Simulated assay, not measured.
Amino acid sequence: MDAIIRVHRLDGKEFVVNADLIETVESTPDTVLSLVSGRKLVVAESVDEVIERVVAFNRSRALPARLEPPAPSPAGRAGAVVTRERDAGRS
């Protein structure tokens, strides 16, 4: 999934930006997003609002990874070794 955030042009029209492509955000006094491609976008949101949206999106994107169950432990292999050692001792 792309890192899409919603922002507004100065005329109020909404559009979306891939937050992963934002290189800098500056206030000149309008908020200008400079993308890695060199393109510049002027948005109605403040610098702080853009930062909050990017951070919120990144947190939401990272959340599912934290909720995944842990990978099974390799206890089965260690158990097999212990069983073999016990079996070897009985001979």
Rank of each mutant, 00 (worst) to 15 (best):
I51Q: 09
E45K: 06
R61I: 02
A80V: 06
D20V: 03
V82P: 01
V43N: 00
E49D: 10
A88C: 14
P64W: 02
E85V: 15
A62K: 02
V54Y: 01
N18P: 04
S91G: 13
R59F: 13
R90D: 08
R90C: 14
V50E: 08
A88S: 15
D11T: 10
E26D: 11
D87E: 12
I4C: 13
A88D: 13
A88Q: 14
A3W: 03
E26H: 06
E68R: 13
F57M: 07
P64C: 09
R53C: 03
V7R: 02
I4S: 15
V81Y: 07
R39W: 09
V17Y: 00
A80G: 13
P64M: 04
V54R: 00
D30F: 08
A56V: 08
A44C: 07
G79N: 14
T31A: 00
A80L: 09
R59A: 15
N58Y: 11
V55F: 04
K40N: 04
D20Y: 00
V32C: 07
L10G: 00
S73W: 06
I4P: 06
S37Q: 11
R77P: 08
A44V: 04
P64H: 05
V42F: 01
S37R: 07
L33Q: 00
A71F: 15
A44P: 03
K40A: 07
E14V: 14
L33P: 01
M1T: 05
S34L: 14
R84S: 12
E85N: 15
D30C: 07
I51T: 09
N58A: 11
G89A: 09
E52T: 14
I4Y: 09
P64Q: 02
S73C: 06
A62S: 06
A78G: 15
S60L: 14
P29W: 01
R61G: 03
V32L: 06
F15V: 03
A80I: 03
E85R: 15
R84C: 02
S27Y: 10
H8M: 04
A75Y: 14
L35A: 10
L67H: 04
R9A: 11
A71C: 15
E49T: 09
E14F: 05
R77C: 10
S60A: 15
S73N: 06
E68H: 11
L67F: 06
D20I: 01
F57H: 03
S91Y: 07
G79T: 12
D87G: 04
F57A: 01
D48K: 12
P72C: 11
F15A: 07
L33M: 01
P69M: 13
P69I: 03
G89Y: 05
N18M: 15
S91R: 09
V32M: 08
D20K: 05
L41E: 01
L33G: 01
S27V: 13
P70W: 07
V55S: 00
R61Q: 08
G38I: 04
V82H: 11
I4T: 13
R61N: 05
A65I: 06
A65Q: 09
A3D: 10
L41R: 00
I51P: 02
R61K: 14
N18T: 08
L10H: 04
E52D: 13
E23K: 10
L67V: 02
S46R: 07
L10Y: 00
G38L: 03
N58F: 06
D20Q: 04
N18Q: 10
L63D: 03
A3E: 08
